[in-house]
Simulated assay, not measured.
Amino acid sequence: MKKSLSLYRTLPRYDSAQPSAVTIGNFDGVHRGHQAILERVRKLAADRGLAPTVMTFEPHPRAYFARRGQRPELIPTQISSLRDKLTSLVEHGACQIALMRFNQHLADMSAQDFIEKLLVQGLNTRWLLVGEDFRYGHKRSGDIDLLRSEGRRHGFEVDTITDVVDAHGHRVSSSELRTALAVGQLAHAAHLLGHRYRISGHVVHGQKLGRDIGFPTLNIHTPQQCALRSGIYVVRAHGLGPDPLPGVASLGVRPTVTQAGRLMLEVHLLDCQVDAYGKLATIEFLEYLRDEEKFPDLPTLIAAIEHDAQCARDYFAFHGL
């Protein structure tokens, strides 16, 4: 059954006065720690007849301040695209998402206004779940104590959540997930996510070079600050047919064939042809094979692709699809 979602880019909501159970965060990756938070919101909302709600931000506040301060090296890498993040939030129980544009206006908003305009007037909040170190408002001036005192005044309850840990007692965090992806540790990333890492996007037209050299590819735009290490991967493609399709993928800037420098995911499906242009595909990353390389000429590139495709076939022959 398809879950319904109300997505709000401005508050107050234009179509609802229903009281809400709210959590606030960036939720990049929607990993197991986030999933535990969302499950608490979902259960309490169901018990109290509230709308389970996530307030999140685009871009990431750290990215906004890094760009404003001309410090691009401080921009955090992006685990999931906005589409993938919203999809995961809905899968884990959110039925309302307040997607707030993080800009100068929001950065300058006082802590008091954040509470009154966004939480009270904006979402009719009755219950709020945030981390113990949650800060908000101009220069991060708002804290939990202010939330609690304003909650008593406006009729909402504030709960905090401590760090979520895995079965071994290790904290599950977006920063640890970014580190795992940065070095191509797909098994550890899958442990933190609760599923294999994946990227989805519409298949777009590329330069057609792959077709010319006998390796047609599906081209998918990715976040330009994608957290996953550039390189060659064994993958499965979902959404292009009734069953997942085996493939080999390159995530990178294609240094042998272009100087453009735009990050692109190129997927070559093994031994099958599909008309995929315009379709929404989800690419699931199974195994890291090697780094992206700049080859001296096309014959060397073709030989490398043939070797990568054989490695992928060997993977599927051993593991199955």
Rank of each mutant, 00 (worst) to 15 (best):
L5S: 08
P12K: 04
Y14V: 12
D15K: 05
D15I: 02
G25E: 03
N26Y: 09
F27E: 01
D28N: 05
K43G: 01
D47S: 13
G49I: 06
L50R: 02
T56F: 10
T56K: 11
F57H: 08
H60T: 10
R62Q: 15
A66P: 08
R67P: 05
R68G: 13
Q70E: 15
P76C: 10
S81R: 09
L82A: 13
R83H: 15
L86W: 11
S88V: 07
H92R: 15
C95A: 13
R101L: 12
N103Y: 04
Q104I: 00
H105K: 12
D113C: 06
L119S: 01
D133E: 11
Y136S: 05
H138K: 12
H138F: 10
D145T: 11
R153C: 01
H154I: 00
I161G: 00
T162A: 14
T162G: 15
H170W: 11
S174M: 11
R178G: 10
Q185A: 15
H188D: 14
H191M: 13
G206Y: 00
L209D: 02
I213D: 01
T217Q: 04
T217H: 04
V234F: 07
V235E: 04
R236K: 14
A237G: 01
G247D: 09
T258W: 11
G261R: 09
G261Y: 10
L270F: 07
Q273A: 13
A281G: 09
A281N: 09
K294P: 05
D297A: 13
I305G: 00
D308M: 07
D314F: 06
D314N: 14
F316C: 09
G320V: 12
